[in-house]
């Protein structure tokens, strides 16, 4: 007889573990990655590789030599962070930019709080925002690098649709004029968007990833759906009020990383609320702040900031938004 095990109930456990969940996220990112390799060729591969390697390395070094704890890079969470960081950068970013982002993401945002599960902010997003603020020119340089497969690179404009719209509005143009001057077709935005960071090229690829995550039950559908819904409703209302200066729902949803952010960044387990009530408040908050930044702020997109701002509310939401309890009132006496 093998050695007799004794433990408390239950005696069965799920097969999933942290590593398998993270692996599922990586698989869900694969379509977007493939699309970006198709469009940006070597530079996309380079960014992702540098991102993953530097994130894993930073985590390994910190755990091994500074925290002197068990090294847990095997759980793939650093790999996901590296991947997401790279996918959030412009395709023309130099490799050292990714390394700096990785050091900020893992070294400052994740490990100083104690590692996996302890951080307040989404590491990849802070990395991106840090770079955006520190290197604004590099981070808004949407020139298209060399590609392996596409020859008609001229078909792409050099700025994101949101950026063009924002600049145009600032220059005193109205939206119909801007749209007339630039050919944004929804077909293009849905399948292959003109300009943007590595990962947000194709909405279709991102949605494929979303469906995969839902099927594997890695994430709940609440967060992405509520964020997109909130943005659609809010921009719809503004657009109805004045279509000359407020962009419409479809334009807003398919541009500026809303899909990438809401599917892969806002749903990060660690930095999103745990109960359904909290999730609803959190997601609506992200949607509202995104629209406010886009319409009234200095940055053309804003979902990164919106997610980070709502990240700060998560501990509070976890504390006050309790799940629906089974037992309602306490018996008297």
């Amino acid at each position: 007889m093998a050695r007799l095990l004794v433990s408390g109930a239950p005696h069965l456990h799920v097969k999933e573990n942290t590593q398998s969940l993270m692996r599922d996220v990586l698989i869900a990112l694969a379509p977007s990655l493939l699309v970006s390799i198709y469009f940006f060729g070597f530079s996309a591969i380079k960014l992702v590789l540098v991102g993953v390697i530097s994130c894993v390395l930073v985590e390994y070094l910190i755990q091994k030599f500074i925290m002197k704890t068990k090294v847990t890079v095997n759980d793939l969470s650093a790999t996901v962070t590296g991947c997401l960081l790279a996918l959030n950068l412009p395709p023309s970013s130099p490799w050292w930019l990714v390394v700096i982002g990785a050091i900020v993401a893992i070294g400052i945002v994740k490990m100083t709080f104690g590692g996996l599960g302890q951080n307040i902010f989404n590491p990849a997003l802070v990395g991106r925002v840090f770079l955006l603020i520190s290197f604004p020119t590099l981070m808004t340089d949407w020139t298209i690098p060399e590609s392996w497969f596409r020859t008609d690179v001229d078909a792409f404009t050099g700025a994101t649709p949101l950026g063009i719209a924002k600049e145009g509005l600032a220059a005193g143009l109205t939206l119909p004029e801007i749209f007339a001057a630039n050919e944004f077709t929804f077909r293009e935005m849905f399948f292959i968007k003109a300009g943007g960071s590595v990962g947000e090229i194709s909405a279709l690829a991102l949605i494929l990833g979303f469906v995969y995550l839902l099927i594997r039950r890695v994430i709940k559908p609440h967060i992405p759906l509520i964020i997109v819904g909130t943005i659609a409703v809010m921009t719809g209302i503004f657009n109805l009020i004045n279509p000359e200066i407020y962009t419409g729902p479809l334009f807003n949803i398919f541009t500026g990383g809303v899909l990438l952010g809401s599917i892969f960044m806002a749903t990060d387990y660690v930095t999103s609320p745990m109960s359904v009530k909290g999730i609803v408040i959190y997601s609506i908050g992200i949607g509202v702040i995104t629209v406010l930044i886009r319409y009234f702020g200095a940055y053309p997109e804003g979902i990164s900031f919106a997610i980070l701002i709502m990240n700060t509310t998560v501990p509070l939401l976890n504390k006050y938004c309790k799940p629906w309890r089974y037992a309602k009132e306490v018996k008297n006496g």
Partner: peptide
Amino acid sequence: KTNCFDGYASCKVMASLYSGD
């Protein structure tokens, strides 16, 4: 040893379950 405890490594938890390993 007559068996192997497979739960949370705490005497309190272990003692609440059974007599010992």
